[in-house]
Design a protein around this nucleic acid. Sequence first.
DNA 1: AATGAATGAGCCTTCATTCAT
DNA 2: GATGAATGAAGGCTCATTCAT
Lengths: 193, 193, 193, 193
Amino acid sequence: MPRPSRWNEIVDAAAKLFQEKGYASTSLEDIAGAVGIWKGSLYHYIDSKEELLFAVVREPAAHILDQIREIATLDLPAAEKIRRVAHAHAHTLDETFVYASVYLQEIAGRHHSAEWSAMDREYLSTIVRIVEKGVADGDFAPYVDPRIATLTLIGSLNWMTHWYRPEGALPATAIAEQICTVFLQGAVRRSTS
Amino acid sequence: MPRPSRWNEIVDAAAKLFQEKGYASTSLEDIAGAVGIWKGSLYHYIDSKEELLFAVVREPAAHILDQIREIATLDLPAAEKIRRVAHAHAHTLDETFVYASVYLQEIAGRHHSAEWSAMDREYLSTIVRIVEKGVADGDFAPYVDPRIATLTLIGSLNWMTHWYRPEGALPATAIAEQICTVFLQGAVRRSTS
Amino acid sequence: MPRPSRWNEIVDAAAKLFQEKGYASTSLEDIAGAVGIWKGSLYHYIDSKEELLFAVVREPAAHILDQIREIATLDLPAAEKIRRVAHAHAHTLDETFVYASVYLQEIAGRHHSAEWSAMDREYLSTIVRIVEKGVADGDFAPYVDPRIATLTLIGSLNWMTHWYRPEGALPATAIAEQICTVFLQGAVRRSTS
Amino acid sequence: MPRPSRWNEIVDAAAKLFQEKGYASTSLEDIAGAVGIWKGSLYHYIDSKEELLFAVVREPAAHILDQIREIATLDLPAAEKIRRVAHAHAHTLDETFVYASVYLQEIAGRHHSAEWSAMDREYLSTIVRIVEKGVADGDFAPYVDPRIATLTLIGSLNWMTHWYRPEGALPATAIAEQICTVFLQGAVRRSTS
DNA sequence: AATGAATGAGCCTTCATTCAT
DNA sequence: GATGAATGAAGGCTCATTCAT
């Protein structure tokens, strides 16, 4: 029975190390060592170190974008869509924590290829449109600036990579709920609620 | 009276390059070249590359922590304190944009010395206490979890390094106002307002 | 009867690549790729990369040496022998252009095994003897130094690998004729001819 | 008293090794070892290995081209110009033997930059024009094809790198004289001379 | 203060070769 | 015969750091 190829082991090890030490500070020798092969052997699987970064990051990035795309098409009030966005985002973060962290540290905001910029842009603009509709429909307050508000929400969620731990006691769902509740209802107590 | 030297030029150049390319990918030769001296000459100013990173980052970090400390001591309602926190944070980000970005990319959430961890922890806990008091006083809604809410706010603000540009048309003040308004009042339109 | 295998394909591909990129800069993966097999599979045909170089080069080298040996035994005037040598040399170069180019680039003048040195030496000395006899018989001018003159001729012919193209308009025969005519008659116009 | 920089030592060592083992088979470690420094230290002097190749080769190539250019402008019979070309070529080969050998092995006939192709082309065409004029003036025989004859001469001279040794008993001048005499007068004895 | 040559370790990558399947 | 994963050495190159001048 043939042992399965070690591609998955390699991507996992790379993801973990990229997250811990950063892409630039992780050597291929580190990765190879974690898998238990020689660094030259990595080149059976990849053509360059950067390819490994992209391999780590592509799937979760595509996954979350898909989810947001789908939520946008549903026929729901803006607030409910935002709630679902927050939960999908937090859920993906939870399930692909290491991979997603690498994305946010190494790809987002760095000058990378058109592929990633386009992904970032679509992700943002899809949510912006939800917020815009919320304002237009009167569901959201008139003081809401759709773009800034969206970046506020995304920032809250992405910052989770700095403090959330998947194996911790606090579930991602609860966090998502808190983040979107504060985003939607505000921290200040509403007189009539 | 200390003779002015090229120390400031060096720190500025380092900050800019660290932000653009990341700490690990910036070489001392890059920095020396930006200042117009030779690589070896840098060692008249520093003892190691890491020292340069800390030099870049120390002042703005200390500055913002000071501000938050002071705000915490004021006798104001929680909502007003949060508003001031957001403005102080955004203002520091605006004024020390490159330096602060380096801090967030290279120090925050990385395993650095006790000095930085302590700073991060104090910053967070100071704001958490403001929120806690807000909840206790009934100013903030009972569903607010002080720690998560604080991290939500900080995340929103820190994410600015991914999209805010100091020289841009949108002033940091307006952004701070939007972020804390959404944080405090929520995006959803309040029936009785 | 030996089953035809891909041996010839492999040697052809190797020859072409050795000529284009040089022996040292051609990888076995390049060669395997050109044939359409995997790198490891090459080792069913060869034991080492160098063996492939020798395989490329052995046949044409042996062929031209055989021809020169035979010409030397004929009972002809020196000038006619030289003419035949030039034609044989140019003809072999034309027919085995890629292989012969590899020989001249990678074997001739390099420190290779006794086998190749002996071949080179015999080739040279066989022609030198023809010239010597030409001088001794009074067919060739007394100022002719047999060894230098022979190296002059061989150099002219071998330099063809730098500019001759088998598929070009100018046939190798015409070139051989020009080279040996200049060698024998000289470029300067003879008063009484 | 400051020790002079080791640039010359480095180029010399590189030239020697490139000639002996070929450019591709010579490692920077070989070169550094020959000079007595570490391989990383080479990068104070060069930006890439190829730059070292060009440094080895540029001066003698430019020198010989200059000489041929000058000879072409003189008011002399074609045969005398050719004689001077042969002597200049052989003399440069003699004085810069290792460098020139590297040029012929590694640059000539390889797919290099426009700079080298242009040099090769100008060198050839300058001599071709001398021969053309010789034919037109009736100094050279009508059977002389200027381009092929020129390549014949150049080939003879360049082949010297395969057998000439500067420290040997046979001086380059004598060889040049023999090569151009055979080229001009032919090996065959002239009845009326 | 500044230089610039040198260090020495380490990095990404290539590659001839081996071998179990 | 062929595969493809793995090896292990080496190659070109980078870089933080040192130090004599």
